[in-house]
Design a protein around this nucleic acid. Structure first.
Lengths: 97, 97
DNA sequence: ACTATAAATCGGATTTTATCGATATATGGT
DNA sequence: ACCATATATCGATAAAATCCGATTTATAGT
């Protein structure tokens, strides 16, 4: 759990949006065909207006920071919030800051 | 209280160090001649190895984000943590994230 | 083997951030 | 008024982040 890496990941509005949308997939990704239990399909995040490659980069940064998990299912990759890491980060920040 | 601005301010090791040092001024700034009640004198932070102008810039970013307060006393400017803003930020982040 | 779709990676353009030395501004003391 | 000290601001440079389109890689279906 790299606090600095997580802070950098959070210090960007698009990535913050992605994390927030993932709290309510049903509400924010009504067009997804797949069941939400698997997570949210990567391509769904292009709704933020950024290109496929940019979205992929943001998802990679969130994933490397440990803030989301990803699972490949067939040709798709599904993302979920990693609540464990998020909670641990908040705890440490509350202690350290 | 601008959450994004605060996150950007925190997403930098030097600024994070400054905030942490300010939790224990007596320990981290033993060379300060002034009483610590006033805060920590700006020049003290040059102990992080950065130039005076760079330190001044970092302090300005922390101040604009509301994470520290500053008070001029004579020719010096003293900095303290702004515990109110820090606590409010942590609360909001814990709610929002 | 070929085609289609999803996602990652590459290469490059642009913007933002970090840093410095030099200079300007503010204050205090002589 | 002048000099010394503390801090802020300016201008330049280098590094990092953001973003895109094009290409590559992975998987699925025919």
């Amino acid at each position: 759990m790299d606090k600095d890496e997580i802070l950098k990941a959070l210090a960007n509005p698009a990535r913050m949006d992605i994390l927030n949308w993932l709290k309510n997939p049903e509400e924010h990704f009504p067009t997804q065909e797949h069941p939400f239990e698997m997570g949210v399909c990567a391509s769904q995040f292009e709704r933020c207006g950024l290109s496929q490659s940019t979205v992929s980069s943001h998802l990679g940064i969130l994933h490397r920071a440990g803030l989301v998990t990803s699972k490949r299912v067939g040709q798709w990759i599904f993302y979920k919030r990693n609540e464990e890491t998020i909670a641990a980060f908040l705890q440490q920040l509350t202690r350290d800051l």
